[in-house]
Amino acid sequence: MSLHILKPGLLDTIQDEGRYGHGHLGINRSGAMDRAGMAVANFLVGNPAGEAVLEMHFPAPEIRLDAPVLLALAGANFTARADGVSVPLHTPVLLQAGVSIKFQKAISGTRCYLAVGGGFALDTWLGSCSTNLAAGAGGWKGRALQAGDVIAFRQKISVAQFELGEKMRRLPWSANVSDFYPANQAIRFCPGPEYGWLDTESQASLEQSDWQITAQSNRMGYRLKGPGLHRKNPAELVSSAVTAGTIQLLPNGQPIILMTDSQTTGGYPRIGQVVQADLPMLAQLGAGQAFALQRVPLETAFAALQAQEQMLRRLKTGCALKLAAVLTARH
C-alpha cells in the first residue's frame, strides 16, 4: 500500500500547510509553495486542504504504485503518463496496483502536486508533515525523496472499483483552476515596513518595470532582475522577521521575493509583501519568466484572499459531493 520512488526528480518533497509556532526558535515554516495547487489536489481525492502531498519539480520522479489508489495531480503540467496512458491534470483518477507514473515534459507551471485519497502515512515533526530542508527534519526523513524510498498510504481502497485489466479509471469531473492562475496578471503587493526607504523614483520603477526571475531562484526565494532600485536611507537595518512573499531589497539594488523555505528573520529592507492570494500564481512561475508588480491597499489583499477562499470552499464541496456519489454507486 505504498508509493515507490524508482527514480528521483529534481526536488521532490512532502509538504503540507507548513509548520508554525516555532519562529522564535528560528525554525522556518516550509510548506507547499502553491497552497491552492495543494488544496485542489487534495479536494479532488476527498482530503482536507492541508493534507500532506508530494511537491514535484521538473524533471519529476518516476513512481510505482504497489496498491490501487485514488490520486490527483494539480499545479504544473508535467504531462504525466500511467503505464503510457495520459493522466489528466486537476482530475481524480483511480490507478491500479503495479502502475508506473512518468512525467514526460514540462508544459506549464513549476510545481506539480500529487495527492492520494486518505493521504500518506507520515509522522509529524512539531505539528507538521512539511519537509524542513534546513533542519533536515519533517516530511520524509527531513530530505528530498531518493530512489528506493517507499511512502505508505494511510487508506486502502477497494479493487472492486476497476474492470478486469483496467489500469486507470478517470472519474468524470475535473477542477477549473484558471481563477487561481490568471494569465499575464501583475503580482500584487502591499508596502512593507521599509517601503519608505526607497526613493520616490524607485517606488515608481518597482511598479513600472518587468521583473525577471533569475536562475538563482528556489523554494527559499526568487532573485529578480530589473532596473536598479535606490534607497534614500543608507542605514543598516537590524534583523527582523520575514515570511513567504516578503520583498527585500538586496545591497545590489535588486529585489528578492522570499518564498516558503526562507529563513525566519532577515536584515535587508522589507520594501513589500506579496498578497497571499497571488502566491500560488508566483509559485508556478519559474526562472526566466517575467512579471509586473502592482501596489495595492491592504483591503484589496484581504478581499482577494477572501475571494480565493470562497472559490476553494466551493471546489471542496463540489468534489466531496461528486466523489461520494461515485464511490457509493460502485460499492
Binding site: 534583523s239 484581504f302 484572499l305
Partner: peptide, 22 residues
C-alpha cells in the same frame, strides 16, 4: 495567531487572515 517572531527591537506576529475573515 500562527507565529510570534521576536527580533532585536521588533516583534512580528503572523496571523491566519483566512480564519479572521471567517
Amino acid at each position: 495567531v500562527l507565529d510570534l517572531i521576536p527580533a532585536y527591537s521588533s516583534l512580528c506576529m503572523l496571523f491566519d487572515a483566512r480564519r479572521l475573515l471567517q
